[in-house]
């Protein structure tokens, strides 16, 4: 009787779908970035996409963390990862990506990395979500909030950020872009003075030549003096005086990375999952600055 019952259970178990649990190593560059939110969104989404539940599942996905602020040596990180033998590496930040760049046998997905292509150099096991916010998304949000804005002033460096100007002009031909090229930060204040009376908004570019601690004051001083709002790409500029920020959504980035990870873990080669741009942005209006600049914001998306 007991043998018959045992056989029945075995037959039932054999009929169930296989549900594997994966080992994932999360490498963090440090604590200064908002990584917890990204990791949480990644893990939640991954569990949703690859459920490690069912009659055959023994344990859930295992996430191990390596914090580079505590383990700064690249060799140590590599050795540690090889000991773990994970199914996937999630690299958060530039330093994390640099640390795991040379581990070729394990798939790597990066997040929160500026200009990752410089680091990855076409390595086939590395993919991820780009941090740059597409100009089109920024101006779509801008048009929604400040439809009266037509003339966009921008200071750029011809070597680093000329491409963004071209893409913006291509994507939003309805807008007038007044762009001035600066060869150094010292030239930015003077160029800003040239924009006086010619623009409705100043567009900050993620270019260290034109956007740095030395020039930021000039932007916001110009903004306040001439009542011209500044459109920025990161929340950090809100407290300095930016009127509108259109920036990445960390939760959406985490979910995008999880979807890529699911595909890779299910067998798709990493080369088949190319790096993607962010799909969703977050828009924040600085109410105090807007009031002082006497802006009429038509709508604000809830955060």
């Amino acid at each position: 009787m007991k043998k018959t019952l045992f056989l029945i259970i075995l037959i039932l178990l054999a009929g169930g779908r296989i549900a594997l649990a994966y080992d994932i190593v999360v490498v963090k560059s440090g604590n200064e970035m908002p990584m917890e939110l990204v990791v949480q969104a990644f893990s939640d989404k991954l569990v949703h996409l690859l459920p490690a539940r069912g009659v055959k599942s023994i344990e859930p996905h295992r996430f191990r963390e390596i914090d580079l602020s505590r383990t700064p040596l690249k060799s140590v990180v590599e050795q540690q990862i090889r000991e773990y033998r994970p199914d996937l590496i999630l690299a958060l930040g530039r330093n994390a990506l640099l640390a795991v760049r040379d581990i070729g046998e394990i798939p790597v997905i990066y997040l929160l990395v500026v200009a990752p292509e410089i680091i990855t150099q076409d390595r086939e096991n590395i993919t991820g979500v780009k941090l740059e916010i597409p100009g089109k998304l920024q101006f779509d949000e801008l048009s929604r909030l400040l439809p009266q804005v037509r003339r966009i002033g921008v200071i750029y460096n011809s070597e680093h950020s000329a491409m963004e100007i071209q893409e913006a002009r291509r994507d939003r031909p309805d807008l007038q872009f007044v762009s001035l090229s600066a060869q150094s930060a010292r030239g930015v204040p003077s160029l800003l003075e040239e924009l006086h009376g010619k623009v409705d908004l100043i567009w900050l570019l993620p270019d260290l030549i034109v956007t740095n601690p030395q020039t930021l004051e000039s932007y916001f001083l110009f903004s306040f003096k001439n009542k011209v709002p500044v459109l920025a790409f990161s929340e950090k500029y809100l407290k300095s005086g930016a009127a509108i920020v259109v920036t990445f959504d960390l939760e959406a980035m985490g979910e995008q990375a999880a979807a890529m990870a699911a595909r890779i873990l299910l067998g798709t080669p990493v080369s088949g999952v190319p790096p993607t741009e962010i799909s969703r942005v977050k828009t924040i209006v600085n109410q105090t600055v807007s009031r002082k600049l006497q802006l009429t914001v038509t709508e604000e998306r809830p955060q």
Partner: peptide, 18 residues
Amino acid sequence: YFNTSPSSDESLYFEMDD
């Protein structure tokens, strides 16, 4: 004086406390 904190690409997006 003028502030000249060393700038990295990440510092464009995040507050770099360190």
